[in-house]
Design a binder for these strands. Structure first.
Length: 216
DNA sequence: TGCCAGGCCGGGT
DNA sequence: ACCCGGCATGGC
């Protein structure tokens, strides 16, 4: 068994299924992906709840809304002016590309959609992959701060390495399945939150403790 | 109370 | 090709 698969099994055994991504629709998932940029998920939930209460959690409604009005609603998510612009950029793309329909957008291929998403202002690699995986159900492996931190703390790949380097690690050794990629990334967030906080050094409580030490 | 949270952009070197 | 400042709220 490969190292990456072994890590997956250890995490899954410890934490069980994570049931990601929280959201009632693929559109909501995509909105959440933008709002959660460098932001606590709890704050994102408050922002999304505001949109739901106003009845504007749809491409059409948000497309027609003024940027500043949207900003006021998503205020709890932080960076609200920036994120209001980013949401409107994404929605303008969705309207242009798929008449505002996530279902229509889903018809594209992973590579084609990834390239187009990266051209949208405010969508970088992690957000693009999150939308691809969790909203559009394409096998894109999401690399985030937790993934990098957990892997680097266990001596598998240095934190300074690029997004592509980390992603290649997974793509080259795992079967490209949505179900696996979904659960795996969610498990990294889980283990990161539980045992791998920014401040804490490598901790012996972690299910991955003692896995592999190539340095440190 | 300061630090942190499921990044990204634009300008500078 | 990197490096950095800016963007902001809420919870512990």
């Amino acid at each position: 068994m490969t190292l990456l698969l072994e890590i997956y099994h250890k995490l899954y055994t410890t934490f069980g299924p994570q049931h990601w991504w929280p959201g009632d629709s693929s559109f909501e998932v995509a909105v959440g992906a933008v709002l959660t940029q460098n932001t606590n998920w709890g704050n994102v939930e408050k922002a999304i709840l505001n949109l739901k209460r106003k009845g504007v959690l749809s491409a059409k409604a948000l497309h027609e809304m003024q940027r500043d009005d949207l900003a006021a609603l998503i205020r709890p998510a932080g960076y609200y002016n920036v994120k209001a612009g980013r949401l409107k950029s994404f929605i303008a793309f969705l309207m242009e590309e798929a008449h505002g329909s996530m279902k229509v957008l889903k018809k594209g291929t992973l590579q084609e959609l990834r390239k187009k998403l990266l051209d949208v202002n405010g969508i970088g690699q992690e957000t693009a992959d999150s939308i691809l995986l969790y909203a559009l159900e394409k096998p894109a492996f999401v690399i985030d701060a937790y993934t990098k931190r957990v892997l680097s703390r266990h001596g598998i790949l240095e934190q300074e390495r690029s997004y592509e380097d980390f992603q290649e690690l997974f793509l080259s050794s795992l079967k490209r399945e949505v179900r696996l990629f979904n659960e795996y990334h969610a498990l990294f967030v889980r283990v990161g939150k539980t045992f791998c906080k920014t401040r804490n050094p490598l901790c012996s409580e972690c299910p991955l403790y003692g896995l592999q030490y190539t340095h440190g």
